[in-house]
Design a protein around this nucleic acid. Structure first.
Lengths: 360, 360
DNA sequence: CACGTACGTGGATACGTTTTCAAGCATCTC
DNA sequence: GAGATGCTTGAAAACGTATCCACGTACGTG
């Protein structure tokens, strides 16, 4: 195992100074013959510039960090693929962290990235704004994806927090969703790329309404404040609080929430699951309780995942473009030439399959 | 945005030399009072040692690389989670790459990791041994997970390659699977952590045999040579080659392969899918062709994924511990104190659900 | 022919850390 | 009391690169 060739070796072998080699390789000016010779020698020595040296010199690490709650969640897998695709086309590395939805782990991972001098990252945040302000202040360029961090003083109870947000957002046309999202991100001065949850949820609720459903439940997870808010808004004024339940992010707790919901409120006729693990839990819980889908209960799930079609009946879903979301976020990070990029909101689409039927 | 404090700042503020600060922080010897003062100052300045400086000095990057074919495949999501869990507990970063199953992209990513001076990586290889020998020769510590690279001269046609391997392995007791796997990895002198594919497949085939099935098909994907071999071995001597088909890795090609299989051989009564995307394709294709599972065709799928239970009937699977696999691989990489670690083979388990029935 | 300009070039420096080395000092031993 | 021994300490070198700066050389212009 021989040592890698350094820029010094190349310079020596080519009979030029290291500065010249550096210039040639980074596109600076050099005479044609010098450039040619340097390139030839570099190729022959199989020289590859050390990212370590470069990064140290310019006091920043190339590439970007990526923080997601759980790679086992297919949606985050899609998002990660999008980020990786963009990063790969730019030749930049991405260092990955999985937070498990735990703000504490998230903070640890942020610290680790800081230590690595990673100065750009895209994140699906689990902690609140307070968790993130240190990273921002440290000069990191952050782009949030899929969600935004809760505001600093947010109540522990997601219902409470959501109500507060509702009062702010209620009545706004969906076209303003973008502005609202950007506004929240701006509290941290951080751009974001998220799906148009408001429109997606509203479309789903209207669809269910059109099928005659009156008692529609929402099965939510952590970080889905915007979706809950949109649900409350779409359902209208007197929302039955018992029909809005939350899991903590794990599959077990999602199942518990779903099962509890079905058992405590046998009168509900439709449920909107705020994410694919919630949807999975809903299907399992319904089956366990001998509830037929869609005969006894209609189900629409946020996230279109490959296995949604496998269920029988195939799941009606609110599709959000996970891969695009990742790709766009990575683009934002990479093309941010010093200027703070603009937030983007991606469209959702209601894909009607077979898990919704008329009210029994 | 103020500059991060450096070791120099700490030394100055504490009235000591930089060497002393470095020693205190990396656990070297120092007088109690000096140590205390240095720690206090470091904490007050919020000093965090720069990984860049350290890495440059020791000519190696901490952490590890992780290369998987596709994060959208739930199994690789599980594997990645395992790796991340172990890395996180060690406080080490992991830089991720998704190869899309393409050897060329894989080679590019290896190059990128080399440039980053990442000297340890765990990989689910897509390319053959030739793709990997450069990395090995460059001094990288590699651990293969889930699969091993194909031998250098392997035929393009997976069936052909598998036949060749079959002749080598045929008749070996399953207890020797570990030795055989280690042997192949050793061609590159690389340790690996894989599942006991041979035992898993054999158990599944015997189970299907026990249900009366005679015409059992295998639906394979890239990199599943060991599983195909095991399948051929378990089925016995005269294996009907038309019953062994392959997709290229994409969901579309998997679907095409499954659909083609069902249509060309309506006489088959059971199929073993070599991975979860293959299993997914088999379910979809069967449904499209109005084949009932398990009435018309029995199905057992490699990989236990959360949605296997969602299908109706729930899928009978060969479970392999994806998360453990990642964790163990990361452990091997991290605990490899210079010594080349030993390969490990993890057990599989046949989980019987509802997708297999007696031969019609 | 003299002068100014433009450009190609290489030496030197800095990035932040770890590690080697020798020096300083106190304690211990004969 | 002199030498040996042990521990703590700081100066300095190195890791591989990018960039500043000054030096030449060639060329164009007056």
């Amino acid at each position: 195992m021989e040592r890698r060739a350094t820029i010094k070796d190349v310079a020596e072998a080519a009979g030029v100074g290291v500065a010249t080699v550096s210039r040639v390789l980074s596109g600076g000016s050099a005479s044609p013959q010098t450039r040619e010779r340097v390139l030839a020698v570099a190729a022959q020595l199989d020289y590859r510039p050390s990212a370590l040296g470069r990064n140290l010199r310019q006091r920043r690490t190339g590439g970007m960090g990526l923080l997601v709650p759980d790679l086992t969640d297919t949606f985050y897998g899609q998002l990660a693929e999008g980020v990786l695709a963009c990063a790969r086309s730019a030749g930049e590395p991405v260092v990955l962290g999985s937070t498990g939805g735990d703000p504490e782990q998230e903070a640890d991972l942020i610290g680790m990235l800081l230590e690595q001098s990673v100065d750009r990252m895209i994140a699906v945040p689990s902690g609140d704004a307070e968790t993130w302000s240190p990273a921002i202040r440290a000069g990191m360029t952050v782009v949030f994806a899929d969600r935004l961090p809760a505001p600093p003083g947010a109540a522990e109870d997601p219902a409470g927090a959501a109500v507060k947000d509702l009062m702010l957002l209620d009545g706004l046309p969906s076209a303003a969703a973008s502005a609202a999202a950007a506004a929240q991100a701006r509290r941290l001065d951080v751009p974001s790329v998220v799906a148009d949850d408001r429109a997606g949820i509203r479309t789903a609720v209207r669809y269910l309404r059109g099928l005659g459903h009156k008692r529609i439940a929402f099965l939510g997870g952590p970080g889905q404040d915007r979706r809950v808010t949109a649900f409350r808004e779409a359902v209208g004024a007197p929302v039955d609080e018992e029909l809005v339940v939350f899991g903590t992010g794990s599959r077990d707790s999602a199942y518990a929430a779903a099962s509890g919901l079905f058992q405590s409120r046998p009168d509900l006729s439709a449920v909107v699951a705020g994410g694919n693990v919630l949807g999975e839990a809903a299907v399992l819980a319904a089956r366990e309780l001998d509830l037929r889908v869609p005969k006894d209960v209609s189900l629409v799930m946020y996230d279109d995942v490959p296995w949604a079609e496998l269920c029988s009946p195939p799941l009606t879903v609110i599709a959000q473009p996970g891969r695009d979301m990742g790709y766009r976020a990575a683009e934002l990070i990479l093309r941010s030439g010093g200027r703070r990029p603009r937030s983007v909101v991606l469209p959702t689409e209601l894909i009607i399959r077979g898990s919704c039927g008329p009210r029994r």
